Amino acid sequence: MDKDRIEGAGKQAKGAIKEGIGKATGDTSMQVEGKADKAEGKVQNAVGGAKDKVREGS
């Protein structure tokens, strides 16, 4: 498994936690940061998945 997939999953989890805390406390900026972290994590995870596919095809 590519390290980008692992890091991406971590960023998604971190983003979900931030978003949840932001919702619970009414902190809109923290919610937005959480959503951004989740999106960044999804992209990084997808990049890692693509790298894995390339390696599998080799």
Rank of each mutant, 00 (worst) to 15 (best):
Q44E: 14
K35Y: 06
E19I: 03
V47N: 03
K23V: 07
I6S: 08
G26C: 04
A50M: 09
A9L: 10
G26D: 01
K14F: 08
G26R: 01
K38F: 07
K42C: 07
T25G: 03
V54M: 09
R5S: 13
K23M: 05
K51F: 09
D27I: 02
K18L: 14
Q44R: 15
N45I: 06
G20S: 03
S29L: 12
I21L: 10
Q31L: 07
G15V: 01
A16W: 00
N45E: 15
G8F: 00
G22Q: 04
E33K: 06
A36R: 10
Q44W: 04
D37E: 15
A13S: 12
G20Y: 02
D4Q: 09
E7V: 11
Q44K: 15
G41S: 00
K51H: 08
M30L: 15
D4Y: 11
K35P: 03
G26I: 00
E19D: 13
G41W: 00
G20N: 05
I21S: 02
A46K: 12
T28D: 14
K23E: 09
D4E: 10
K53E: 14
I21E: 07
G34D: 01
A24C: 02
E19A: 14
E33R: 06
Q31A: 13
K14R: 14
Q31I: 08
K23S: 05
A9H: 05
I6D: 08
A24K: 04
K53C: 09
D52R: 05
D27E: 07
A39Y: 04
I17V: 12
T28I: 14
A24P: 00
I17R: 08
D37H: 11
V47Y: 08
